[in-house]
Design a protein around this nucleic acid. Structure first.
Lengths: 149, 149
DNA sequence: TCAAACATACATTCATAATGCATTTATTAT
DNA sequence: ATAATAAATGCATTATGAATGTATGTTTGA
């Protein structure tokens, strides 16, 4: 019972982008690259590659191919819900499985509903927060990210 | 992000025991055996073996070795919290991991706290329910269990 | 047209949950 | 006492899926 690293990496990437976004609203926004993310967080390029692609498909970031390409947030940090990000990256599966292997108790089982509602509570709670909520220490984050690599 | 089958099996076992417990308060309580559980739910004896042992160590069930041995609930169903059972069987690990691989953002990261609180909310919710909450359809469960295998 | 950057597909490794197997220990009926 | 039964324990194996690695394609700007 733990979030996948995949999801974790996705959140790190978004935090990275948001920290620069908070920097300067007027200037042409900085593009990040996969290489840059990997250097900063010391992660595998391939895995980051996939997560970035996924974030792009989710329209959370805008990706640009080619020379001087890269990616940036596609929306304002306050419009990116943590619940959405985690649900999508994590995959929205049931937290308890009655079918595999099949449980004979299923027709009379109260458990699956209870766990399902608990899961929804978790996501409801997360939906109070956005990427902006993670930016309360943006200057410190920027400092960390610029020093790292 | 899913409960382990191990945890699931543990809950099934407890439900099985509780369904009989609800049956007849006065009679010497029926003992279940691992074999019986395996037959009923069509599970591997070895895995069930381990879960039963674990439930015993947690003092949720009382196990008896030897001929005519088996196990039964060690407390009333209303005193067995689903939050406790799941937390224990699942292992009480963090839902997000900052150390592996280490995340440079950690000193300025709001995320870990948010996820941790969400996790606690999940368990707080579960702590409203006990094994007794799973017995609202006890007669039907008994019927299922007696027919199965 | 070259180089940089993401896109995509497939293969491989790794972690760990899920099983399997064998043996030991405790208990009780005979 | 002894045999049978049931949990306890330890170790080995398999299965699953996440996490990586490798390779190549595609787009784009200089």
């Amino acid at each position: 019972m733990q979030l996948k690293k995949y999801t974790d990496y996705g959140l790190r990437i978004l935090m990275y982008l948001a920290s620069f976004d908070a920097d300067d609203k007027c200037a042409e926004p900085k593009l990040a690259t996969i290489r840059e993310i990997c250097d900063t967080f010391d992660l595998s390029a391939n895995h980051v590659n996939k997560v970035v692609h996924h974030l792009g498909r989710l329209q959370l970031i805008e990706t640009r191919r080619g020379k001087n390409g890269g990616f940036l947030l596609a929306k304002q940090p306050e419009d990116i819900s943590l619940a959405f990000v985690i649900r999508q990256l994590e995959g929205d599966e049931k937290w308890i499985e009655c079918e595999n292997p099949y449980c004979v108790a299923m027709p009379a089982c109260e458990l699956k509903g209870i766990v399902a509602r608990g899961k929804e509570l978790f996501y409801d709670y997360l939906s109070q927060y956005t990427l902006k909520s993670l930016m309360v220490k943006a200057p410190q984050l920027r400092q960390i990210f610029s020093t790292a690599s």
